[in-house]
Design a protein around this nucleic acid. Structure first.
Length: 871
RNA sequence: GGGCGGUUAGCUCAGCUGGUCAGAGCGCCUGCCUUACAAGCAGGAGGUCCCCGGUUCGAGCCCGGGACUGCCCACCA
């Protein structure tokens, strides 16, 4: 394996970590080493994650970056635990989205899909995929994602296609896939049916027309309300509620449909609300989902006034070929001429629009392929109910179950050319369903393709070689975790569970982690079209701040580590606003580790090797702290708590390691023991942080003497183990006192305006500082020997844990300021004493609170009194 | 119309099973280029934890009600 030596010279000369230089070089090393390549070994402990496949022509957005960071933390962690890992990577052919892009390209070339024909078009899409399909994969690499790039999958790969066909044919044979005329969401934009889940509701102000339909016997009229008057051409009934006293007597009569002259029965149906509109409902089974249901209940004709091209059909010849809008205008004008419009008022309501094309959905009846879902949903519900699949956070389970319990048939055919073509052939009246075209001449294959989600539903097992019982499948299925945003819980996650259980014999994953959605800094949805999007790559490499930021200018090149850290630190189970500060914090952490490493390496002697050899209380302290942090990190990764994970690492590195431990050891000789301990702590810290900030830790690992002894790459080294035996409560208490005392002295010096470099004579009159007094003295810049020798009275008395510090400050002290400070402190202590006394005077507290709490409160009170007396 | 979540320092957010929990980062103020780091260090100011009740010895944390806000689901013409 190629071993790029760490640029040790950089460590000596630079004071800042430069991610832009290091990260691409380090990614190369990982790729060369093949850290992402999962090796099959059926029966051995394995850990796999199937990435939610991004659209093949897509670009990395914030959601990908966050999810990629999460999955990479999990994968790297489990890799370092020594498990076989496989992060299944690949792209989705994304039927409508991709086809639309290529169609647009064709238009710019002055041609069209129809002009070049199906075969040539599909070829063009493949070309397009070849040209742009690699983009997002490269972007995942830039993020540091340690996925299995050698086995990149695509949902239209030949073997994947075979899996899709097999599932279709099997479900057909089992009677779960069927063809039917049914109401679908027709998207005039893509000229295809789309699923309920691809529909979004928008508020629209339409006109609500009240239209009079005369009774056939001339005895009166029925007034119906509608926002779609043009659909009246396809009306086949008028409905009233049978319990509505105003209209019930009309049931069984007929009305004359204006403009058309058709006689419509008046029917009774409970669906009609008596307190809404006019209480009478025109029934158009061909163009309204509810009317369709009512029509089926009553055996009504299903007429189509609007065609799949979005234009009026020849149902009523004089309207044929008009757009819907034109037809509406004409219908209304004609009705007005005849004096049949009883009212027309603005009406605000929600209307379905296509998520894909943005056009208004036209519900219409169409011959489509459907999948019956009830039989598939039941086991998928059970899997979550009984915990074989755990959804995090738990509250999402309910949404999942609710949705599956109310599931309806899934329209799986799409009128597109790009996708898995439906394996059904027709000849005269015959239908053939099979993996291959039937023998014989004259067969025509169904022109439609399958909904993209049909193939995505097979992702966790089709990518591992199913239906063949491959070693990869046997090793890595079921996968461990599926990480995703909420929005595809139904669209994708639920369907994977159904298909996995049905075809692969087990759930597709054990845990589903639903991560947050990161919104723009102003709280709006991140979106390219709104101008609220933030490109993660521009955060990594630097680039102009989008307009959503209050301040302009360019992002600095934060680097991938910083972006990963930032995204993880800002994420939670709820939606959060993007916070550049967290990315900034991530960069600061990387830089801090870089400089801490510089410091250690510049001091430790040649030949030192990592090894915990605690000589002093501060050594025992940092080792103890490390155990705590290792335990925390492991627990947090296991629990998908990524923000506390990232922020906990930051706190340890900044707080414990750099602010205190490194400062505490500066006065010591860097002998072999100290050096070994320092290197050990540093090495463990790098390993600990590696899943979150892999680049900088890998870079520094290579520079550590003995780093490569354990493993040539940190990415494949062992994750730290929390060793309970190294927990050291005594050392923790001693150093906690040191920190409190040093902080108190510093605070006083700052307030009193003592020159920072000045070392003050002082006395430390407190218990518990036997080994640590000299540490306090050096860091707080006080001279205890001079203090002991000094005859002058104490100028300043600072209360510290265990006693006081007396500062013999002479000229450096402002007596008035000192008196004021002491008074403030006295007030503070008295307030705390009052609070503690109040608590202890409460009989209920003494009687009912846990005894150790009461005792602690008493101790606290004693201490407060002592501190007050010492003032 | 249902369901779920949120409301904690100027901003973005942590606060586990109720008892040093009033926190972090950024911003702000003061002082420091202290031989790892000025992308730094030290210190500091700043909060009626949305409102009203309740449970409890004790409540950001539990319960009830309310206000505001976000998201999801749903076929009201």
């Amino acid at each position: 394996m190629r071993r790029t030596l760490a640029p040790v010279s950089d460590l000596q000369s630079k004071t800042r970590y430069e991610p832009a230089d290091a990260e691409p070089r380090i990614m190369e090393r990982w790729l060369d080493a093949g850290i992402g390549a999962g090796e099959a070994a059926p029966g051995e402990p394995a850990y796999a994650i199937a990435i939610p496949p991004p659209n093949v022509t897509g670009a990395l957005h914030m959601g990908h970056a966050l999810n990629g960071s999460i999955q990479d933390v999990l994968i790297r962690y489990h890799r370092m635990l020594g498990e076989r890992t496989e992060w299944i990577l690949g792209t989705d052919h994304a039927g409508i989205a991709t086809q639309t892009q290529v169609e647009k390209r064709l238009v710019t070339e002055g041609t069209s899909r129809e002009a070049i024909g199906r075969e040539a078009f599909v070829e063009r899409v493949w070309d397009w995929r070849g040209e742009f399909g690699g983009t997002i994969i490269g972007q995942f690499k830039r993020l540091g994602a340690s996925a299995d790039y050698d086995r990149e999958r695509f949902t239209l790969d030949a073997d994947y296609h075979q899996a899709v066909l097999k599932v279709f044919v099997d479900l057909f044979d089992q009677g779960l896939i069927y063809r039917d005329n049914y109401m679908v969401n027709w998207d005039p934009g893509s000229r295809s049916a789309i699923s309920d889940l691809e529909v979004e509701d928008r508020e629209v102000t339409d006109t609500l027309y009240s239209i009079a339909y005369p009774l056939a016997d001339g005895s009166g009229e029925i007034v119906v309300a509608t926002v779609r008057p043009e659909t009246m051409l396809a009306d086949t009934a008028v409905a009233v509620n049978p319990s509505d006293e105003r209209f019930a007597h009309l049931i069984g009569q007929t009305v004359i449909l204006p403009l058309v002259g058709r006689e419509l029965p008046v029917i009774g149906d409970d669906y009609v609300k008596t307190d809404f509109g006019t209480g009478c409902l025109k029934i158009t089974p061909g163009h309204d989902p509810n009317d369709f249901e009512i029509g089926r209940r009553h055996g009504l004709d299903e007429l189509s006034a609007i065609g799949e091209d979005g234009l009026m059909t020849g149902l009523v010849p004089e309207y044929a070929g008009l757009t819907v809008a034109q037809a509406q205008e004409r219908v209304v004008a004609a009705l007005r001429d005849q004096g049949l419009i009883r009212a027309a008022e603005p009406y605000l309501h929600t209307v379905p629009f296509s998520h894909r094309s943005g056009e208004r959905i036209e519900p219409l009846i169409s011959l489509q392929w459907f999948m019956a879902m009830d039989e598939l949903a039941a086991p998928a519900i059970a899997a979550v109910r009984d915990g074989r699949v755990r959804i995090h956070p738990e509250s999402q389970s309910r949404r999942y179950i609710d949705w599956l319990e109310n599931i309806r048939p899934w329209c799986i055919s799409r009128q597109l050319w790009w996708g898995h073509r439906i394996p059904v052939w027709y000849r005269d009246g015959e239908t053939y369903v099979g993996l291959q075209a039937p023998d014989g001449a004259g067969w025509e294959q169904d022109p439609d393709v399958l909904d993209t989600w049909f193939s995505s539903a097979l992702w966790p097992f089709a990518t591992l070689g199913w239906p063949d019982e491959t070693p990869m499948l046997r090793t890595f299925y079921p996968t461990a975790v599926l990480s995703t945003a909420r929005d595809i819980l139904f669209l994708w996650v639920a369907r994977m569970v159904m298909m996995g259980l049905r075809f692969a014999g087990d759930v597709p994953f054990r845990d589903v982690y639903v991560h947050s959605v990161i919104q723009a800094p102003d709280g709006r949805r991140m979106s390219k079209s709104l101008g609220t999007g933030i490109d993660p790559l521009e955060l990594i490499a630097g680039g102009p701040r989008p307009p959503v930021f209050a301040e302009g200018g360019d992002f600095p090149a934060y680097g991938a580590d910083a972006v990963r850290f930032g995204l993880l630190a800002m994420s939670s189970s709820q939606d959060v606003r993007f916070s550049e500060e967290k990315v900034h914090q991530g960069r600061a952490l990387a830089n801090k580790l870089f400089n801490a490493t510089r410091f250690v390496l510049s001091r430790v002697p040649e030949g030192a090797r990592p090894d915990p050899r605690p000589q002093t209380v501060e050594d025992r302290w940092i080792l103890s702290r490390l155990q705590q942090v290792v335990g925390d990190a492991r627990r947090r990764i296991d629990a998908f708590e990524f923000a506390p994970l990232a922020l906990g690492l930051y706190d340890f590195v900044y707080g414990d390691l750099c602010d205190w431990y490194l400062e505490l050891v500066k006065g010591r000789e860097f002998d072999d023991d100290l050096s070994a301990t320092l290197l050990y702590v540093l090495r463990e810290t790098l390993a600990l942080a590696h899943p979150v900030i892999p680049f900088v830790t890998e870079e520094l690992w290579a520079a550590l003497p003995g780093g490569g002894d354990a493993a040539p790459l940190l990415a494949t080294a062992a994750y730290p183990v929390a060793d309970r035996a190294r927990r050291d409560p005594d050392a923790e208490a001693r150093i906690a006192d040191v920190i409190a005392t040093v902080t108190a002295v510093r605070a006083w010096r700052n307030e009193a305006g003592v020159r920072p470099g000045l070392v003050l004579p002082a006395r430390l009159l407190a218990d518990g500082y036997g080994q640590t007094a000299s540490l306090v003295a050096r860091i707080a810049r006080i001279d205890l020997e001079a203090g002991a020798a000094g005859a002058q009275d104490a100028a300043v008395v600072l209360p510290v844990p265990g006693g006081t510090v007396e500062l013999l400050a002479g000229d450096a002290v402002d007596p008035e300021e000192q008196a004021r400070k002491r008074e403030a402190r006295r007030a503070e202590l008295q307030a705390e004493i009052a609070r503690a006394e109040g608590k202890l005077a409460n009989a209920g507290f003494i009687a009912k609170a846990p005894p150790e709490l009461v005792a602690a409160e008493r101790d606290k009170l004693d201490r407060l009194h002592a501190d007050l007396a010492a003032l």
